[in-house]
Design a protein around this nucleic acid. Sequence first.
DNA 1: TTGTAGGCGTTATCAC
DNA 2: GTGATAACGCCTACAA
Lengths: 354, 354
Amino acid sequence: MPRTKGSVTIEDVARLAGVAKGTVSRVLNNYGDTSAETRDRILQAVERLEYQPSAAARKLKRGRVDTLGIVLPAGQGEHADPFLSEFLDGIAQALDLSDRDLLVTTAHSDEHAVTVHDRLIRSRKVDGFIVTRTQGDDPRIGLLLQRGFPFVAHGRTKETDFAWYDVDNERAFLDAVRHVVALGHRRIGFLGGPVRMNFAIQRKAGYRRGLAEAGIAHDPALEIACELNEMSGAEAARTLVHLDEPPTALVCVTDTLAIGAIEALRALGLAIGRDVTVIGYDGLPVGAYIDPPLTTFSQSAHAAGARAAQMLIDVIEGVDPLERQELVRADLVKRASDGPPEKTPKELKESLAR
Amino acid sequence: MPRTKGSVTIEDVARLAGVAKGTVSRVLNNYGDTSAETRDRILQAVERLEYQPSAAARKLKRGRVDTLGIVLPAGQGEHADPFLSEFLDGIAQALDLSDRDLLVTTAHSDEHAVTVHDRLIRSRKVDGFIVTRTQGDDPRIGLLLQRGFPFVAHGRTKETDFAWYDVDNERAFLDAVRHVVALGHRRIGFLGGPVRMNFAIQRKAGYRRGLAEAGIAHDPALEIACELNEMSGAEAARTLVHLDEPPTALVCVTDTLAIGAIEALRALGLAIGRDVTVIGYDGLPVGAYIDPPLTTFSQSAHAAGARAAQMLIDVIEGVDPLERQELVRADLVKRASDGPPEKTPKELKESLAR
DNA sequence: TTGTAGGCGTTATCAC
DNA sequence: GTGATAACGCCTACAA
């Protein structure tokens, strides 16, 4: 039976240093009222025994565990979400600087996610949560607000009275449309996301604003709501390109959709960046390795994770959540999947007919 | 009604049920010596108050936290390792079934990794570790063995007296060489990994065995040790292809290297799968989206994570670690980056000279 | 400046 | 069967 081998307690340290455990505790927590001499003696004992306070005992007394929690969507069909990996890495990096750790759990549905958050709160395993992929009306956030439990959301929701870190989605898609319009496109398709996702709503708004700004009439046929996987993107691209007046540019709500679209269009013999322009969003590393390399908007998942973690730490330490709301811009990463339209929609249509 | 403040304790439940807290505890831990009547009354109170035991207090008494730990390499240069993401997802899935959680930390060097493991052990935040990317001589495993702390390694080391889950790396690379030999290749390059990594050593052994089996003389110039990123793979590919007698097939120790190699070779105007065959290893989803889709060996990182987690749980619960050692096979995932050589090495060389 | 003691929420060992 | 009560390891008033 593997058991925790004789872990050193504060008692051991006290004995070795010849003081009471209370004194050891005070030194370790920087009360500053201990004499330099005993202080040194205690620290030396700590060093020698390699003493570290038990997280559990400490928690019991102080009510903090120095652990942040995150509940991820369980991997759908073996494919881990690359955005989340980078986001996690960013969190871990920020935590490393603050001697805190990250508890990771997964959930396979919205209700399950709420259950898991609740369990973690009640078992007091974490001090706060980072919530990702927020929805317009998010039950997790509802729970957290109701419980008064610290958290930071990556992305806003309808209600916004809490701490969040978000990308200016609307602005990014406005910029995307401006970009393709500047290239000469007038017929611009939009591969959107599930309507319950808040970011999908915001990005669609940006797309429409871009059209309006350029004086292009909005055509509902050019907007498709997709699931967030390649297949869905491929399907949507095929649908759009077979319209009577197909778009010469596709603005996609995520890189994953864009990659699926590119796959499908190439299979139809179209030259990406010349026959059809495709623009993604996320700045995933994968994007650089597909053919042609994907032009996209990048929000640095890594930076987002790191910043969200730090914001959460602040909130846990008592900062007003409303003082921790940050909106950042996504930047265009110009690669090779965009370019001036070499065909009119009509010519595009004809080239497919052959 | 769940109150926002002051979490429910066992005391609250006891009071509501009109019993002593000891009794509540016994019911909750299935001692089975309680009368059916009080049992029901207690469970009802638990339900009503939505009581959940405090993990910290429980830990203090029982010495278990129901939390597994993993220390990941900190993301190098913004690129999260896709293998690890899937591995994590597998762990999470297994844990979901057992009401345990996963504590994730990162380390930016080998020594740091040891420090972090040590800190986690001493602060008793986890019951055991999953160790990934083992090295031939691994300091983390040294520490864990010395401390007598439960762990499972994904990959073996020199010493193998502990629980591990590993892929038969040698066999996979033997198979890889057999595969390209069967296609007609005789000049076969090897993009290896850092020599301290155990899997790199094993894969190289498989490669050499494959050559020997086919009666092909081993040429040291065809073997290159790379770092595990695209750039390194690209560089190695360029070096090999510019040899006097370049290889017509490249067997790569990871998909990441293979992807880098493909990038570089395509940039030189070579047709992958015809001029040069490239084979990877890992079965990363990305591989399916590059051009051409990467032929690779798949070990299902997801399955590995799930299995490793379950093995660790077994070990924590007292199973002899030596009874938890598993070797699995990696299977060839045939896509389109391999094929019969259309050029001899000499012709390949000439086509590059132009 | 330092020692003593009570309590955080559980579980386990006693009595009854 | 069930109720007290003593730990578990730490922090922190309070006393000395």
